[in-house]
């Protein structure tokens, strides 16, 4: 017993159907395999394949093993289409909090594909969905982000949705946010809202070019 001498030969790998498979239909079948390892590999291999979006979304809804779910979500993020985003958006209503949080995290990394659905989410009846939507805005590189946030601050009835928006406006806000921040502080008269508004106003003032 000791450190093994190198053999120079590849170690024989255990039998792995995904290792031999190149065509996507076969990978799709592997996506429903009883073995979680095979499902996980198939999901990873489908990341380069846009036509797999619906298969991955369908499997995501029924998948019970967390690591497989993670890989499915990663592949959908890599696919990065509006179709993938719409599928992930339905996960925002899932009972399972982990699935909800994973979907938000994935959608944050898909800014371009996100833009067409974000307005709809921001108008959702459920304040939790609106908080999720605001959270997604944080890493969205889109020219409308500031306007969407200001709209939430002026119009959303839920203090928690507004707080989520304040968290981001401090980082992305420009001068046009200043009057809205003042209105928001007055509208709620709450310690945290006041703090977040002051902070955002200060940050925006600091980043203003010296005249």
């Amino acid at each position: 017993m000791a450190l093994l001498q190198k053999s120079g030969q590849p170690r024989p790998a255990p039998d792995d159907p995904t290792g031999r498979i190149l065509d996507v239909e076969a990978l799709e079948r592997c996506l429903h395999d009883p073995s979680a390892d095979i499902r996980r590999r198939a999901a990873a291999d489908l990341a380069s394949c846009q036509q797999a979006t619906q298969w991955l979304l369908t499997q995501l809804q029924q998948e019970t093993i967390p690591s497989v779910r993670q890989v499915i979500i990663t592949s959908l993020t890599r696919i990065n289409t509006t179709e993938a985003v719409q599928g992930l958006a339905t996960c925002l209503r899932a009972e399972d909090a982990r699935l909800r949080n994973d979907a938000i995290e994935a959608m944050k990394q898909m800014p371009d594909a996100m833009a067409p659905v974000i307005e709809e989410l921001l108008q959702d009846q459920d304040p939790d969905i609106r908080i999720f939507a605001v959270n997604i805005l944080e890493s969205l590189c889109h020219e409308q982000v500031e306007n969407w946030l200001l709209d939430v601050m002026d119009n959303d009835a839920s203090i928690n949705v507004v707080c989520a928006a304040l968290d981001i406006i401090g980082e992305v806000g420009t001068e046009i946010a200043l009057p809205v921040l003042e209105r928001t502080a007055r509208r709620f008269n709450d310690a945290y809202v006041g703090f977040a508004c002051d902070l955002a106003i200060r940050r925006i003032a600091d980043s203003r070019p010296a005249s």
Partner: peptide, 13 residues
């Protein structure tokens, strides 16, 4: 907390 302003708020207090 994943919200940076909330962390800062509590930190200040």
């Amino acid at each position: 907390d994943d919200a940076s302003t909330i962390r800062l708020y509590k930190r200040c207090i």
